[in-house]
Design a binder for these strands. Structure first.
Ligand SMILES: Nc1nc2c(ncn2[C@H]2C[C@H](O)[C@@H](COP(=O)(O)OP(=O)(O)OP(=O)(O)O)O2)c(=O)[nH]1
Ligand SMILES: [Mg+2]
Ligand SMILES: [Mg+2]
Ligand SMILES: [Zn+2]
Length: 568
DNA sequence: GCCGTTTTCGGCCCGACTGTTTTCAGTCG
């Protein structure tokens, strides 16, 4: 059983317990354990009971053990009978939580969405004690977008967020402003746009915000906090505080929640209180900090923590020990080694790519079009690739500022061999190898397939290693630890593919790869010159994976890179 | 249900906004 499947069952148990009115510590414990398991690079079956897993104690360990050995959990089968799925789904509607869902279920025993819709239309919901017409209306409206995907790609949300940010920045009552929440932490997917503003006239700012042209609906509006929906139901949260509280509010609103809770717990143990307005002495309520994030973290013996690390993954302890990594930055990147041109399915010519790369200050790029017998993405045949290689060598001769490598993205065959002749492979500088077929092989088979590929002397970089597509396709079921070990053994590079829907390896797996001594390359997989800008997203993944400049292949200067990859 | 340089039992972050409230619980951030 896969980690995500185990985690999903624990999340469902938590939801059921919450609706049943169980004390919050119990269902929160299930969520904590689920989060640990879904963020594991190792397969849960390989580490359960052998390694300390935060939030997994005796009771949950036993249940997970049963789940992975039998594929079923008696306890879960039993409790889920009490609550039909629709009751849990209902809580996805804005304003409906576990208590309301339970209230409705107890009053009228709905079993499906249809039941719920009928009850709402015939006004049987608003007659339930404790519920009124507003709730009933919210349910009717909310039912239609129940099953829609709720998280957006960072790459899609960022431009919209910046647009709103820039509009608010113009307002004269706005003093300081920052994007916050998961956007500031650069999570791979984003549920909503969180913005923090400081001002002496919060009402003015809120009035402006809630009447922006792109606002479709005002969900909540208060003097310090408002929520609106824009465009196709993207939620935007605005928080307004006084200038004196900017640091505290930014710390709060950047999160994550999982970071804030243990931080506040620690602060409380030291005799203080931390909220979005500042740090206060518990005894006297005297304010002692809050203007900047830096002074808050310092006050409690920490160095400032980069937002990308604020996920409760050991950053608080590391900040106390002053052992946070010196994170890689976009400006450290010297080149891009995975690029498609109009020889295959790319939109831009090699020449255009070179020009844009030079503007970005790169010292090298590799053109890596698809090649091979599997006819995907306008794959080149070998003869065309040969022509392309000559073309690239010619261009490279003329270029002084930038080195252009000849490369290809080669399919990994079912047995792990490469779908290109040795003769041609031998002429390439950069060989990206990736899976493009049969991504659903068994864990054992696909792991061996990749290990075989990694053992091939011609492979330079393993491209988008897990094959996941955000909101579309689960990662392949791979023993990543085994992959990392083999990559390390053969000195192979693993990719952080920066394409917005891939971001593969992801943050936690990049971190684990690095801990196993594997070098990573951040590649955009650009299909047009404009897409070279995706590098920013890849760097964010690396930063969230605690990676430093030296952990990334393409921060190397040209000469060092050539030496490392034995390119003449 | 989990966890421990105060603890093996007693805590577990802290605050804003709304609807249906007659004094605040529920939901959300
Ligand atoms: N202290 C504290 N802070 C919270 C809590 N819930 C949310 N926050 C803070 C931290 C979050 O990063 C921030 C924004 O909340 P969001 O619900 O928008 O979450 P976030 O942006 O982190 O992720 P998402 O929107 O799901 O992509 O508010 C909470 O329960 N306690
Ligand atoms: Mg958010
Ligand atoms: Mg939010
Ligand atoms: Zn590609």
């Amino acid at each position: 059983m896969r980690n995500q499947e185990v985690a999903d069952i624990l999340y469902q148990i938590a939801d059921i317990l919450e609706i049943q009115g169980e004390i919050q510590w119990k269902f929160l414990a299930y969520r904590r354990a689920a989060r640990t398991i879904e963020n594991l690079s190792e397969n849960i079956a390989d580490v359960l009971g052998k390694q300390k897993l935060p939030g997994v104690g005796k009771a949950i360990e036993e249940k997970v053990g049963e789940l992975i050995s039998t594929g079923k959990l008696e306890y879960f089968e039993k409790i889920k009978k009490a609550i039909p799925p629709i009751v849990i789904e209902m809580t996805e509607i804005e304003g409906i939580g576990p208590k309301t869902a339970k209230l409705i279920y107890d009053a009228i025993k709905i079993k499906s969405i249809k039941d719920l819709e009928k009850a709402a239309r015939s006004h049987r919901i608003q007659r339930i004690k404790g519920i009124g017409p507003k709730m009933e209306k919210a349910i009717l409206k909310g039912l239609s977008n129940l099953k829609k995907p709720k998280r957006h790609l960072l790459g899609v949300i960022l431009p919209i967020a910046n647009e709103i940010y820039n509009e608010l920045k113009q307002v004269k009552e706005v003093k300081q402003i920052s994007l916050a929440g998961s956007i500031r932490r650069r999570r791979e997917t984003i549920r909503d746009i969180d913005i923090l503003v400081t001002s002496d006239k919060p009402e003015k700012v809120m009035q402006f915000f809630t009447t922006l042209d792109l606002v479709k609906k005002v969900v909540v509006k208060g003097p310090t906090k408002s929520t609106v929906n824009v465009r196709s139901d993207i939620q935007v949260d605005l928080r307004v505080v006084e200038d004196e509280s900017y640091g505290a509010a930014l710390q709060y609103f950047t999160g994550s929640k999982e970071h804030n809770v243990p931080l506040r717990t620690m602060v409380a143990q030291m005799g203080y209180k931390l909220n979005e307005y500042g740090v206060f002495l518990k005894e006297t309520d005297e304010k002692v900090a809050g203007k900047t994030e830096d002074e808050i973290y310092k006050l409690f013996g920490m160095v400032w923590i980069p937002p990308e690390l604020r996920e409760d993954r050991g950053e608080i302890e590391a900040a106390q020990a002053n052992s946070l990594p010196n994170l890689v930055e976009l400006t450290d990147i010297r080149g891009d080694l995975h690029i498609h041109s109009n020889y295959s399915d790319g939109k831009s010519s090699i020449e255009d790519m070179v020009e844009t790369a030079k503007k970005r200050g790169y010292k090298y790029i590799a053109i890596t079009d698809h090649v091979g017998s599997v006819k995907i993405a306008g794959a080149l045949d070998e003869t065309t690739l040969q022509n392309q290689i000559s073309h690239i060598r010619e261009l490279d001769q003329q270029e002084k500022e930038i080195r252009i490598f000849a490369g290809a993205e080669v399919n990994i065959n079912l047995d792990g061999s490469l779908d290109l002749s040795e003769d041609t492979l031998d002429q390439l500088d950069i060989v990206i190898c990736s899976l493009h077929s049969k991504l659903r092989m068994s864990r054992k088979e696909i792991t061996n397939r990749i290990i075989n590929a990694l053992s091939n002397e011609y492979l330079t970089i393993l491209g988008h290693p897990t094959g996941r597509l955000l909101n579309k396709r689960q990662p392949s079921d791979i023993d990543l630890i085994a992959i990392f070990e083999v990559a390390k053994e053969h000195g192979k590079i693993l990719e952080i593919n920066a394409y917005p829907s891939r971001l593969d390896l992801n943050d936690v797996n990049s971190r684990t790869a690095n801990q196993h001594g594997v070098l990573l390359a951040i590649d955009t997989d650009a299909h047009s010159s404009g897409q070279l800008r995706f590098m920013d997203l890849g760097v964010s993944v690396a930063r969230r994976g605690w990676l430093e400049r030296n952990d990334i292949l393409n921060t190397l200067p040209l000469e060092a890179l050539c030496k490392k990859l034995r390119i003449k």
